[in-house]
Design a protein around this nucleic acid. Structure first.
Length: 431
RNA sequence: GUGAGCGUAGCUCAGCUGGUAGAGCGCCAGACUGUGGAUCUGGAUGUCGCGGGUUCGAAUCCCGUCGCUCACCCCA
């Protein structure tokens, strides 16, 4: 490392994911894709950069995300662009832009990728973070909500997470929410003075957020505030009852949390969230809900939607804590060769095994056998094939099983089959 | 944006009230010229985050600054 030049570091709140952790990330992504495919969701990929207005209109111009947490800049001094802080708005934009609603039916999308939010970093919260999410567009049927939540439960199960709480609530439609906010403001007028400074401010600016307050002293007061569920109109109430009924039928355990109000403006009716105790203060693992008005907010047609986003950084933390998902990426074969004449034949064997899909490493330069074996051992190789003068002369290579230390001479042409047989006898149940 | 804690070898950390830099792990080599893991021996690596101050002398004390972490806030 040079002492004269200031080393360049990664941007604050953005981190490198290194192996072996990337193996775990891949596993989580593979499980997610499988579950999405099983529920007939298709992948959608939208740009990371969007016009700023997409988010100011959808997420809510007064939310913290828009007012102070977005990476916004002017492109060549002209258009205001923003690194996406979430993906739902983009998916709905794409749905509208390509007039997918004209194709009829219900559209089910999933996506994986980085999002950007200029928060102060802490555990489970980064400025570049990753979400695994899904959106269902084109129907407001309660079955959509129930199926999405069922999907989430299956995915959590697949990655070995069993310790979590699923909260559900309904925030109603704009009509009943307006009524509730009025009642809530009324109720707050009486007690706000006894609450924390933040709540006193929220009582004026965004009374729903008072319900989220974590200050212990405020809790008894919040308990006595009216619940939005009691102010839902008949249709919203019916919708909520159908969703919860279906969750019971589907065997999905949930807890109704009347205080669960999502932070984004576009949510209607169903909201839900999964929290995990292993995540620290940022305990929300995923969240989502219905957003029947979002499409119109960004200039599209009326198009009901439902979706959720899983915080992948947090999901991986929870997967690691649960310790159920074992990820191994074993090196199958290390090819050790001695003498210049052995390089070509050794390379040929490595190429053959690699083409059949095995993970193979080969020494790049001449090494003593002792050194080769030490490297193979460090790399965790299951087998080492040893090729030197004697092996070349006989046409039989030494194959060493690193787990048992046993080795035997195998005909060159038989090596691939031999390794296959050894693997099967070691793990007969796996295929 | 606010607050607290922490910055010493590649990693994890020790270094008491100031006296000139250490351990374990890892890495390299050898004991062992074609046999890894174990053991033993030896070796390399640090502007003690950075800048300033106090002092005969600072990793240690003081101030500032940067970075990381956690929490608040907000949220996945």
């Amino acid at each position: 490392m040079s002492k004269d030049v200031e080393p360049i570091r990664s941007v604050k709140g953005m981190r490198d994911l290194l192996p072996p952790e990337t193996w775990l990330w891949q596993r989580v992504e593979e499980e997610a894709r499988q579950v999405f495919h099983a529920y007939n969701f298709d992948e959608i990929r939208t740009p990371i950069l969007e016009p700023t207005a997409l988010f100011t209109r959808s997420v809510g111009a007064d939310t913290d995300i828009v007012t102070k947490e977005m990476y916004t800049f002017c492109d060549r001094g002209e258009e205001s662009l923003t690194l996406r802080p979430e993906a739902t708005a983009s998916v709905v934009r794409a749905y509208t832009e390509h007039a997918l609603y004209n194709r009829g039916g219900i559209h089910k999308f999933y996506y994986l990728g980085p999002m950007f939010r200029r928060d102060r970093p802490q555990k489970g919260r980064y400025r570049q973070f990753y979400q695994i999410g899904a959106e269902v567009l084109g129907s407001d049927h309660p079955s959509i909500d129930a199926e999405g939540i069922e999907l989430v439960a299956l995915l959590l199960d697949r990655v070995g997470i069993r310790q979590y709480t699923l909260f559900i609530n309904s925030v109603g439609c704009p009509n009943c929410r307006a009524e509730y906010v009025r009642v809530l403001r009324q109720a707050l007028r009486g007690v706000a003075a006894q609450m924390c400074a933040d709540c006193q401010r929220r009582a004026e600016t965004n009374p729903l957020r008072v319900l989220d307050c974590k200050v212990p002293g405020d809790q008894p007061l919040i308990e006595r505030l009216p619940h939005i569920i009691d102010y839902l109109d008949a249709e919203c109430r019916h919708h909520f009852d159908r969703v919860t009924q279906q969750l019971r039928e589907r065997g999905v355990a949930y807890t109704i949390n009347p205080r669960l109000v999502r932070g984004l403006d576009y949510y209607t009716r169903t909201t839900f969230e999964v929290t995990s105790g292993v995540l620290g203060a940022q305990n929300s693992l995923l969240g989502g809900g219905r957003y029947d008005g979002l499409s119109e907010m960004i200039g599209g047609p009326a198009a009901p939607g439902f979706g959720f986003a899983i915080g992948q950084d947090r999901l991986v933390l929870a997967v690691e804590a649960a310790g159920q998902l074992k990820v191994e990426c074993p090196l199958e074969v290390y090819v050790a060769w001695m003498g210049d004449g052995a390089l070509a034949p050794a390379g040929e064997l490595a190429r053959q095994l690699r083409r059949s899909g095995q993970r193979v490493e080969i020494a790049y330069q001449p090494l003593k056998l002792k050194r080769s074996l030490a490297i193979a051992n460090k790399l965790g190789a299951r087998f080492v094939v040893i090729i030197g003068e004697g092996e070349l002369a006989s046409g039989r290579y030494q194959v060493k099983d690193m787990t048992t230390g046993e080795q035997e001479a195998v005909e060159r042409a038989e090596i691939e089959r031999y390794l296959q047989a050894k693997r099967e006898e070691a793990a007969p149940s796996e295929t």
